[in-house]
Design a protein around this nucleic acid. Sequence first.
DNA 1: CCAATTTGACCTAG
DNA 2: CTAGGTCAAATTGG
Length: 172
Amino acid sequence: MNIGTHEILFPPMVHTNLRINFTERRKYNSGGVVRWKQQVKVNLEIGLEVPPNDGYMWRKYGQKEILNAKYPREYYRCTYRNTHGCCATKQVQRSSQDPSTFDITYLGKHTCPKISKTNDMSSVTESGYGLINFSSTPESASNYSRTSDVSSAITRNSFELSNWPLTDSRGF
DNA sequence: CCAATTTGACCTAG
DNA sequence: CTAGGTCAAATTGG
């Protein structure tokens, strides 16, 4: 199920096109912890090295080869685990079938404040490679269909989505 | 110096 | 024991 698509046009000097599809989102509980699964399809013509940022600060704490999986699974926890006691966690795994798709599992609820809703394009180089901080939540994904406001602001290195929800009912 | 990442070791449920 | 999840020391980078 495709619940949202968004295309971003890079600045004129970078002839590249990014498309992110939010293809699936499921919520379920396990042992009292909130658990969220989301499938994010990232499409960049030239290449993309990292999955898009979801607006939170994550710190990687592990990586594991998974049986029968082509790519390793990466383990992240909230940067503010110590300072704010935020124990949210996520796992990111690149799909074996489609390397442009990332299966992301969120575990636990964020108790820390959300960092930013800014999409920072500053690290995108002229070749089109780079980290794209893409703020999104499972909640807002389905509302995300506007492209015009992004295109008009793309001449700068960073832009904001003016109508982007800061919070949602689940705290992600 | 401080904070994030890397990576093999360690832990544990099944 | 195995597979998957986490720890933590060493390394990296600002």
